[in-house]
């Protein structure tokens, strides 16, 4: 019986080790409304940048109500994922606006991006977007940039300070 358990554990370990690839996920950063948008729910927007591999990174965006309200339209007026090298914009994907009611009171979108040529210096991934929560008490709109340094291929995306767009 002990040998069986040992063999099972060994099998599981081999399968896990053979298939494991380190995740280089970044972290979600959320901004919230200062007041309730409807009933006792706040509105908010989140953005995230993750490195997938040396050739790819992932841009993610979400707009939420918390606690979730199915009756409130949530979304964004626009969102964009782009990559910069030494401050110059090398590639960009612009996405259209969205305003939807969902059962969870949240909405989400993502875009895979391929890394661009950058001889030396800083490779920066960015997610831009203006979140919108159309509450009956308050309409929350927030336009800000999430940035991460993706220069170092050996580490995950290094989050940089958020930047508000007037």
């Amino acid at each position: 019986m002990k040998i069986k358990i040992f063999l099972l554990a060994l099998t599981a370990t081999i399968i896990l080790v053979a298939n494991f690839q380190p995740a280089l996920a970044g972290s979600w950063m959320y901004h919230y409304s200062a007041v309730y948008v409807q009933a006792t729910s706040y509105g908010g927007g989140g953005k995230k940048i993750s490195k997938i591999s040396n050739t790819q990174w992932l841009a993610e965006i979400s707009t939420i109500t918390t606690p979730g309200l199915a009756t409130v339209p949530v979304g964004w007026t626009y969102w964009t994922s782009r990559e910069l090298c030494n401050g110059s914009i090398k590639s960009q994907k612009i996405h259209s606006g969205r305003s939807v009611r969902t059962s969870t009171g949240t909405t989400y979108n993502y875009q895979y991006m391929t890394t661009q040529s950058c001889s030396i210096g800083t490779r920066t991934a960015q997610v831009l977007g203006k979140h919108e929560v159309l509450g009956s008490k308050y309409i929350y709109r927030d336009n800000w940039i999430r940035s991460a340094n993706i220069s170092d291929v050996k580490t995950s995306a290094e989050d940089l300070p958020d930047e508000d767009i007037p």
Binding site: R82, K90, S91, Q92, I94
Partner: peptide, 9 residues
């Protein structure tokens, strides 16, 4: 050089 559009306006 690239066969893809940059998307940058």
């Amino acid at each position: 050089t690239s066969e893809n559009r940059s998307g940058v306006i």
